[in-house]
Amino acid sequence: MSPYVSLVVLLLGCCTISRAQRQLPTVPELDVAAYLGRWYQMYANIFSYATFERNGVCIQATYGDKGGGVISVWNTQRLFEPDGDLDALKGVAYQSDPDNSPGILSVGFPNLGGGAAPYWIAKLGPKLTGSDGVDRYEYSIVTDNVSLYLYVLARDPDRYRINYDSEVQEWLSTNGFTGVNAPIETLHVPECIYV
């Protein structure tokens, strides 16, 4: 990333933090088993796309149970095009206080260095039972402790667009994800090569 892009992202982030100076509440309950599995990223914001997901399309996250309260994280994306080079990142997540703050997690990616980052689940969609008999949340809105980053995850892109997108867009607007912090749609097309 060029130093100029980094500076712009940093300055915009500072402005957003100054503007917001608030923490969104997180979900009061989280069924971790219903959160595991594959997610498709439907939206992120400029801060995500300018840093972790630069040039990414067809973005997915897969969460698994590593035991002992640790969740495996495997983020994948194609670079530039739906059949572009695969870019993948492995990490772990955990709840710091599952009894009192179940929607507040920390996620770390050892390959990136640094410590764990806040992963706050601000809203969850309904649970649906899949063909495998497992209940899973239909969508998740994820941010951090200062609402700088934004990720909207869904189990199925088409089902999400039909059933939940307008509800999520309204929630995002009401909760300050507008202007420079507005959601940007992630490309998911039939040509995407998923892993």
Rank of each mutant, 00 (worst) to 15 (best):
V5F: 14
S6R: 09
V8C: 06
L10G: 10
L10W: 10
I17L: 11
Q21F: 14
Q23I: 05
Q23A: 15
L24R: 01
V27P: 08
V27E: 02
L30S: 00
D31Q: 09
V32P: 10
A33F: 05
A34E: 02
A34Q: 03
Y35G: 03
L36G: 11
G37V: 12
R38M: 05
Q41P: 00
Q41F: 10
Q41M: 14
A44N: 04
F47N: 00
F47I: 01
S48P: 06
Y49N: 02
A50L: 07
A50C: 10
T51Q: 11
T51I: 09
R54A: 07
A61S: 11
T62M: 03
Y63K: 01
G64R: 01
G64S: 00
D65H: 06
G67E: 06
G67Q: 07
G69H: 11
G69D: 00
V70H: 04
V70A: 05
S72H: 00
V73N: 04
R78L: 06
L79N: 10
D83A: 03
A88H: 14
A88M: 11
L89I: 13
G91C: 02
G91L: 03
Y94W: 12
Y94V: 02
S96Y: 12
D97R: 09
L105A: 05
V107K: 07
V107S: 06
F109Y: 15
P110F: 01
L112A: 13
G113I: 11
G113Y: 12
G115N: 01
A117M: 07
A117D: 12
P118Q: 09
Y119V: 06
I121T: 03
K123C: 00
K123I: 07
P126T: 14
P126Q: 08
G130A: 03
S131H: 05
V134F: 07
R136G: 00
Y137W: 05
Y139R: 02
S140L: 00
S140C: 08
D144G: 03
N145H: 11
V146C: 09
Y149S: 06
Y149R: 12
Y149H: 08
Y151L: 07
Y151A: 07
V152L: 00
A154L: 09
A154R: 01
R155Q: 01
R155K: 08
P157F: 12
P157N: 02
D158G: 04
R159A: 14
R159I: 11
R159S: 15
Y160D: 08
Y160T: 05
R161E: 15
Y164S: 00
D165G: 13
V168D: 03
S173E: 14
S173G: 14
T174K: 15
N175K: 04
T178D: 12
G179Y: 13
G179W: 14
V180Y: 09
I184T: 13
L187V: 15
H188E: 06
V189E: 15
P190V: 10
C192F: 02
C192W: 00
V195I: 14
